[in-house]
Design a protein around this nucleic acid. Structure first.
Lengths: 191, 191
DNA sequence: CGTTCAGTTGACTAAGGTCAATTCCCGTGG
DNA sequence: CCACGGGAATTGACCTTAGTCAACTGAACG
């Protein structure tokens, strides 16, 4: 809960009363590695804040999974594409480490928006963040080779490279594990 | 101006006075085919609404351009990645037909947000729309082959296929014009 | 020890990229 | 009205790179 409050205070200004309210609006949720926060076909009904742990977003495409995104402690998780229009999600969100979350329901999020002075701003900032980073990633698909995307991933998340198995990273980069293995070999040889 | 008001009324409820205010906040802008609404390196200072015409978003990557997106009459144009944080844009927005816009400055958009009852909601809806469609596109890069992306483009924008040169479509799909030409040939053969 | 699964490696295939030549289309000017 | 020029699109030959299939290695764990 401390990390959540800290992150919120970093984004907006809140009073002591507002802090107390926020603590009431969020509920803790503990997931084991492999558990799902959201499964394909369900409607996403909560926004989560990761206190500790690691999660991945993925789609199923006739059998093989495509990893879209990772999110770790300090980040929010939500499939806005399902949450906003209240439609069944076409992506899943799964813990890939034991993960401690603070989650807020749609109803409580509405309260947060209306009862916290800068609540709307907080919502906007949280969404803008996801928005900008997904556009970044889209651009990378246009600009960068798989090898370059892999290296950018290493630069951006050096810690995650240690925590995430290679076949998930390969999927995130948009290639097969075999190809990533070959790219890695090549990168070592060039260095 | 009529199309803009119609689009806004479709998204939110506005009073007659609010309609008058909105008409004051937007200014017309006429672009010739080839003209830029936003050039790389500039800060995006306006949101535009396309009354009539067609625009494309593109990046430069050592010489060759990558087309990220098209927007036509009835749509909004803005590089939020530059507009929101007021940073120099790394993408350009160019008219590829003679295009009539209604544009609103950041200051006037602030007034729209604060002086129109559902102004914030309008802003949120406009951004959500761009947000959801760019995630859609990102997912397509994971799931779909270039041939499939081309066909999805044709389905989604049958009219645009007639208005946009193939080399721009190829770039949007993420391949070279030669490859798109071969894919087209193959699709005809299969049909 | 044997099982399991991630990761690597090899041989081959498929598909897009590259370079270059050619054709097509369309507008312009003689 | 026709000839020419220029850019778009197509085509061919070849290259590069990721995918596929399958075998193998290595580490973790019971």
């Amino acid at each position: 809960m401390d990390k959540l409050i800290g992150t919120i205070k970093y984004l907006i200004r809140i009073s002591e009363n507002e802090e107390i309210l926020i603590k009431k609006l969020f509920k803790p949720l503990q997931l084991k590695s492999g558990d799902y926060f959201l499964e394909e076909g369900q409607v996403c009904r909560h926004v989560g804040f990761i206190e500790q742990g690691l999660m991945r977003y993925h789609m199923n495409n006739d059998g093989n999974q495509k990893t879209l995104y990772f999110s770790k402690e300090g980040g929010f998780v939500c499939n806005y594409q399902s949450f906003l229009p209240r439609e069944p999600s076409n992506t899943s969100i799964q813990a890939i480490e034991d993960t401690a979350l603070q989650i807020i329901s749609r109803e409580n999020l509405q309260r947060l928006y209306s009862e916290i002075a800068e609540g709307e701003k907080l919502g906007r900032l949280a969404i803008e963040d996801v928005f900008l980073s997904s556009i970044q990633q889209l651009k990378s698909f246009y600009k960068d080779s798989p090898a370059a995307r892999y290296q950018l991933f290493l630069q951006a998340y050096p810690d995650l490279a240690q925590r995430i198995p290679q076949y998930h990273i390969a999927s995130y980069v948009g290639i097969k594990p075999q190809s990533l293995s070959r790219i890695r070999k090549k990168l070592v040889a060039e260095r």
